[in-house]
Simulated scan of single mutants.
Amino acid sequence: MTEETVPRQRTPSSDVFASRMSRVARWCAGVSQSRAFEVAIVIAIGANALVLGIETYPDLGTADVLLGSLEWCFRLIFFAEIAIRILAFGRRPQDFFKQGWNVFDFIVIAAVFIPGLHGDPAALRVIRIARVVRLVRFSPGLRTIVAALLRSLPGVGGFLALALVTFYVYGMAGWLIFGKTYPAEYGTIGRAVLTLFVLLSLETLPELIEQGMAMSPWTLVYYVSYVLITVNLLVNILIAVIVNSMEEARRLEMTEGLAADFDEDGDGVPDEIDRIVISRRLDDLRTLLVELERDLRIDRDEGRPRAAPDR
C-alpha cells in the first residue's frame, strides 16, 4: 500500500516573504527604469573617468587618499546599481544575464572585488577603465554603432583577406621596383607593406611619387593604380560594409520594442531573430504598398486617383 502524497501547503511566513520580495522587485524595477537613475549612473561613470585621469598625474600628495576613498565610493555605487537591476527581475534574476550589455556590466563591476586582482595594479586599472565603456549602454546611438561594428565583422573579415592579398601583391612589386634604390621604404616585404599601409592616408604620396619619378616615369603607373584600387575601391568597400551593418542594427533597434516571439523557442522573449522577422515583414509591407499605389495610379502629390486616359 503506497502512501498518498500530501501537497505542500504554503505557510503564512512564506506568503509574507513572497509579498515582500514582490514589493522589492516592483520598487527596483521602478528605480532601474527611471530617467533619474540612468542620469545618476552616467554622472558616476563620468566622475569615475575624471578620477582615473587625475590619477595619471604624478606627485598628488595627500590627494591619493581622497582618490582612493572616491574609488571605493564608485565601487559601492556600481554594486548597488547592479543589485537593483538584478532584483528588478523578481523571481527570475537569471533573465538579467540574457542581454550582452548586462553581462558586460556585471563582469566589470564584480571583477574589482576579486581578491587576486588587488595585487596587480595594471589589471585592476584596465578593469576600472572598462567602466567608462559602460556609457555606450546608456546611449542608443552608441549602441547602434557598436552593434553595427559587431555585425560587420564577417564582412570585414572578407575585406581584410582581400586587402592582405592586395598589400602583398603591391608590396612584392614595390620590392622589385624600389628595393635596391630605396631600401628604407621597400628593402623587405615587411617594409614595403608598411610603406603602402601608411600611404593609405595619402600624406606620403607626393614624396613617394617624387622618388619614383626620379627613377622612371613609369613608376607613376604603380602609384596611380595602387591609389585607385586600395584607397578608393577597398576603402569604399569597407565603408559600404559598415554602413550596411549600421542600417541593419538601426532597424533592429527600432523593432526591439515591437518584436514578438515568432520563432519556435517559445520563450516569450523578443530575440534578434524575432526582430529581423519583424523588420523584414515591415519591408514587405512597404513594398506591397508601393505596388498597390502603382496599380491604383495614386498620385502622391495630389492625394487622389489619376484619371484614366481617354481612348
Rank of each mutant, 00 (worst) to 15 (best):
E291V: 08
L296Y: 13
A80R: 04
L200M: 11
D267L: 03
L160Y: 06
L52K: 02
E185D: 12
F17C: 06
R304E: 13
G61R: 02
E207M: 10
L292Y: 09
L164D: 04
R250K: 10
E71V: 08
Y168F: 15
R10K: 09
E210Q: 14
L160I: 13
L67P: 05
A18C: 09
D263P: 03
V224L: 10
R134Y: 02
F106I: 04
D263K: 02
V51T: 13
G30F: 00
D310G: 07
L52M: 09
G171C: 05
L289F: 10
L117D: 02
I43M: 01
L288P: 00
P309R: 06
M21W: 11
F89S: 07
V6A: 02
D267T: 05
T195M: 01
L162I: 08
I229M: 14
R311V: 14
Y226H: 08
P305D: 08
I43K: 00
R304V: 15
V277H: 12
R304Q: 12
L285E: 08
S279Y: 05
L160W: 06
A123F: 05
A47W: 06
F106V: 06
V241D: 06
I242G: 07
Y226Q: 03
V235H: 14
V241K: 03
E71Q: 13
R191I: 05
S152W: 06
E71F: 08
V39P: 00
L205S: 03
T195D: 01
V198D: 07
A163W: 07
H118Y: 03
L76G: 11
D120Q: 13
V51W: 05
R297H: 11
T5W: 11
R275P: 04
A110K: 03
D265F: 00
R286Q: 15
F79Y: 13
I43T: 03
A88V: 04
S32A: 15
G100F: 10
E4F: 15
N102L: 03
F74P: 01
C28D: 03
G157E: 02
G68Q: 05
N244V: 11
F113Y: 13
I127F: 06
L282Q: 12
S279A: 15
V39I: 12
V277T: 13
D64M: 05
G90P: 01
V156P: 00
T5M: 12
S201W: 10
W101P: 03
I276P: 03
R151H: 03
S34G: 10
S19R: 13
T219S: 08
G46P: 00
V146I: 12
E4I: 14
L199S: 10
A184G: 12
S216H: 10
D64L: 07
P154S: 04
P140H: 00
G179D: 00
D263W: 04
G90K: 02
